[in-house]
Simulated scan of single mutants.
Amino acid sequence: MQLPKLTGQVLSGLHCFLIAADQMSFTRAAEILCLTQSAVSHKIKTLEQNLGVRLFIRQPRKLVLTEEGKRLKAVVAHNFGDIAHEIRDLKTVELSGDFNVAVPPTFAQTWLLPRLKHFIGQYPALRFHLRTRNELVDFQTETFDCAIYFGHGKYPGLHTEKLMDESMLPVCSHEYALAHDLYGNPEKLNACLLLHDAAPWARAGQNDEWQYWAQRHGVMLPEAGCTFDRADLALQAAEQGIGVAMGRQSFVAHQLDNKRLVAPFAMTVQSPLSYYIVCRREMALSPRFEAFMNWLRSEVG
């Protein structure tokens, strides 16, 4: 069976199809591609005619991918991602050009940023782009070179290296600890206001960290609490005397040293999750990733 020719028209249609399938809207695809909605619709119709298959079921208020459309989307996303990364790598063979990294927000603020000056100083030709997010990266459709995750380390299809383990313990202000008689009395947490990081890791529950700590130490926790969408906000609230936050050692070491926060009882627990650096398998061999990974290892060590 002869394969269909990948003409310019077909390639353009495939790119248009991928955007439309990702957005599930011809209108939003048109905005992204700077085309009219009718132009996008025409491109998709022409592609369907060239391929001899129907890709979308057009319903009054939504689009639905056919089974053929789902299969084609998976293949096109994977291969277009390979092409985009390869083109960029051809332009940035040496330690120069753009280097895009996704990192959890509080990890970026409390651990990475205070150290980043040294890495940038070593590689002045490398344009470092940091983006913060708690959710996982889609390396097939997004142009991140690598990401740091806080998780279990199981990311199929990706190159994964453990960066460091983590431990955690309750922290608050000295004044709050005195007012609630917390020093040496973990049972009195039940009368305190707990401060939660609502998204400590991808797909986590808003009180997962507190519950994990409490179960291992047999401590009863109050039901009431405040939630924040970043761990650093919960820690800042603890500094302000609002309540007690669950602090990761990598986040609170500095505050504990300068007494902005205190640990009213030495009841640390090893976190079930660790920090990992992940990337596409091909990217793991690039000089840029190796330089960044080696620098991270030296900082952790």
Rank of each mutant, 00 (worst) to 15 (best):
T110W: 03
A30L: 10
L195R: 02
S25G: 04
K5T: 14
F17P: 03
E282H: 08
S286F: 00
R203H: 14
A199R: 14
V269D: 07
F265Q: 04
D82G: 00
L47H: 04
P105N: 13
R127V: 13
I87E: 10
E299H: 03
S167G: 06
L136F: 04
P156T: 01
L235D: 01
A231P: 00
G205L: 06
E48H: 04
L11F: 12
F80T: 06
K73T: 07
T143S: 11
L261P: 00
W213Q: 08
L47Y: 07
G151M: 04
T46N: 07
L11C: 12
V101S: 01
V40C: 05
Q249V: 09
V64E: 15
G81A: 05
A234Q: 07
D197F: 10
L72D: 02
A245V: 05
C34S: 12
L113E: 09
A237M: 08
S274R: 07
P200V: 09
P200K: 06
P287L: 07
T92R: 10
T46C: 03
H118R: 11
V252R: 02
L6W: 10
A108K: 09
H180P: 00
T92G: 02
C226W: 13
L235R: 08
F107I: 07
Y176F: 15
K188Y: 13
T143H: 08
R88V: 01
T132Q: 13
H152W: 07
T132E: 11
L6Q: 05
L126C: 07
A179S: 14
G157H: 11
A84H: 11
G218N: 06
N79Q: 10
R58L: 12
H15V: 02
A74H: 09
P272H: 09
S41C: 06
R216S: 01
V10F: 07
D181I: 03
Y275Q: 04
R58N: 12
I277G: 01
A147L: 10
K154V: 11
Q206M: 12
E223P: 00
P200D: 08
K62N: 10
E48N: 06
D98S: 10
Q37R: 15
T143V: 02
